[in-house]
Design a protein around this nucleic acid. Structure first.
Lengths: 243, 243
DNA sequence: AGAACAATATGTAATTTTTACACACTATAA
DNA sequence: TTATAGTGTGTAAAAATTACATATTGTTCT
């Protein structure tokens, strides 16, 4: 084999830049699926689509990825730009690549899930009618965003049974009832109050704050905190929640 | 608001094509992580990298995605081109987007996992030294492929405990011992023979073929088949394997 | 042919986890 | 003061998991 600028003696590719330039290029975006929990309902943060073709339809928070950032960084940036949040849990759920999913041409999008506490994050920016929607009531969206949402919802259902992610949706201090409502709402099942309590207390990462609920019109329940430290330490051994 | 070609009266974007054209574009590839099982070891199909910068290093089977195919279609195509297989299970595991993961510039890659039976798929094409490698022995790869492999391996470990995917790695007819070897190899644990048998038989999707192992130098075991139909039917109720 | 060997096949008792409940307690509201 | 609607705790039965023992059926060695 003759040596050249493109190929080495052994026929290996030298000019990787030209190689990459020869690939077809596509637009790449991230979409953030931001879950919250309020009034015992799972909610999601949406904006109005700003495309005429989707006039009136709701859309996920998304943006194209910049040249020098990872998709995860892009998702964090979108989250920051839209909600002002930093330091938040984010997980890649999937990448959606139907060539015709965007009316303007090929756009691939990576979906990132985030769970946050609605009360802790008052919406300061409400451009494009940004606000919380009850997940159950959403039946139509712009692009393939309904499909993406459903995919993320299934992911969440599975995830909260394996990891105590749900705590990110609750206030710092919460009652066992609130925790149970969260699980019931997301999994769409009813759970036995006593067995639920037993299960979570036996996992041993709830801290009794000594405080009680206030402003409830019945006997107030104890308030707990999530022991992140203990959870992180015992993570390996911990297998799941299993309802 | 003035109506224009770009914007509607309400300020909504009309020209979606220009919108997408304004996004930065990146090269997009798929990489196939093809697992197999042989000699009681989990294996993966690799080729030699054809980039000089990675001379001698091993690389996943990958290719850029074409303009009109989904990533999943691209993965199926790669699989077909490299192994001749059609009709195979494929699952998206994740998308890797470090801006510097490819020496020639930004290339995003989506990882797809596939499990197949090595004996059923003799390698006809052996270009680029395509062959099976023991997963345990791989400690260096081209690009970020080692990271991708590890990510897929963890995915597989989790997945075979939730779904009977492992059957795709075995011959059509297999003994319980082979099945146990598979689980032990992938999960890297030892399982009690009697309890393992009990667990799988109670799941009730193994068909006793009536046939026995041959060419073994000890008492031959029964051969079973996986009852895909029954599994599909009871999927919803079935929660997992749980070791 | 017979004995040693190396697996398969099956069973069972003890333990742990899950499930299905009952009842006492404490705040609010009438 | 009492009814009501929650919280907080316990417990017995059922189911699942675990830790084992023993019988069976081939091969191999002498």
């Amino acid at each position: 084999m003759e040596e050249s600028l493109l190929l080495s003696k052994k026929g290996l590719i030298r000019d990787t830049v030209s190689l990459v330039e020869s690939y077809p290029k596509v637009a790449l975006t991230v979409d953030c699926i931001i879950f919250g929990f309020e009034e015992n309902k799972l909610k999601i943060l949406l904006i109005r689509s700003d495309l005429e073709i989707f006039e009136g339809k709701w859309s996920l928070l998304g943006d194209f990825a910049r040249e020098t950032e990872t998709l995860e960084e892009a998702a964090h940036r979108v989250l920051l730009e839209r909600t002002g949040m930093t330091d938040v849990f984010l997980d890649q759920v999937g990448t959606f690549s139907d060539p015709y999913r965007h009316p303007g041409g090929r756009v691939i999008t990576a979906a990132y899930c985030s769970l946050l506490n609605i009360k802790h994050h008052e919406l300061e920016i409400t451009e494009n009618e940004l606000h919380w929607h009850s997940v159950k009531e959403i039946d139509e969206m712009a692009f393939d965003h309904l499909e993406i949402l459903q995919s993320c919802f299934r992911w969440l259902q599975k995830r909260i049974q394996e990891h105590p992610l749900g705590f990110n949706l609750l206030p710092e201090k919460f009652s066992l009832r609130e925790l149970q409502n969260l699980y019931e709402a997301i999994l769409n099942i009813e759970l036995d109050r006593r067995n639920f309590r037993k299960k979570f207390l036996s996992m041993d990462f709830l801290i009794d704050t000594g405080e009680m609920e206030e402003d409830v019109k019945h006997r107030p329940g104890k308030l707990y905190q999530f022991n992140f430290e203990k959870y992180e330490k015992n993570k390996r051994k911990w297998v799941g929640i299993d309802f």
